[in-house]
Simulated scan of single mutants.
Amino acid sequence: MRIMGLDFGSVTVGVAISDPLGWTAQGIETVRYVEHKKNMLFDRIGELIKEYEVEMIVVGLPKDLIGTETQRAAASRGFAKSVRRKFKIPVELWDERLTTMAAERILIAADLSRKKRKQVIDKEAAVLILQSYLDKKRLEQKNDE
């Protein structure tokens, strides 16, 4: 089962996809959109769902360091609800605490210029969101056995 991870931002959405076994997350792309033209964003997400045969989506939920939802969390919740309604597949919200900072560190370590980092940081954050979800689910499954 393939799972899609989304890092929802105010201008871009980072997209990651799991491998068919649900072990690893790979960054696919960063989708740019304009707030009043979200239909283009949903069209692209729909194309990716079909292309990769996605059966579930994980949307990052912004929280601060102590676990309280940030102001941006309401927008992420609304986005997740719209995705669930539009594509009729399960959507789960997942704590995305510190993923953007971790993505930034990874990209700096890879010696990417500031300009290139800006282009791919949301995609990398989506990878971290999805990978943490996959790791947690795999651990839960192992503990159930």
Rank of each mutant, 00 (worst) to 15 (best):
F79R: 13
E104R: 15
K116S: 14
E55S: 13
A16D: 03
F87K: 14
V83C: 01
I57A: 05
V83Q: 04
G14P: 07
Y52E: 04
R77E: 06
M101P: 01
K115S: 12
D95N: 12
Q119S: 12
P62T: 09
L112H: 05
L41M: 05
D122W: 03
V15H: 03
K50Q: 14
F42L: 12
G22S: 08
K37S: 10
Q119L: 13
V91W: 09
F87D: 04
L6Y: 02
K38R: 15
T68D: 15
K116C: 09
E140I: 01
V91R: 08
L21Q: 13
I45E: 09
E51N: 08
W23S: 09
D19C: 02
M56G: 07
L98H: 15
L21T: 13
R32S: 10
T99E: 07
A75G: 12
D95I: 02
I45N: 08
V54E: 00
V120A: 07
K142Y: 10
G67W: 03
I57Y: 06
G46E: 09
K37P: 01
V13R: 06
E124S: 08
Y33K: 10
A102R: 14
R85L: 14
D111R: 15
D19W: 07
P20F: 09
W94K: 02
E53W: 05
I121P: 02
I108K: 13
Q141Y: 10
D19G: 07
T24D: 00
R97I: 00
T99V: 10
D135S: 09
P62L: 02
E29Y: 06
R77Y: 08
V83H: 05
K123T: 15
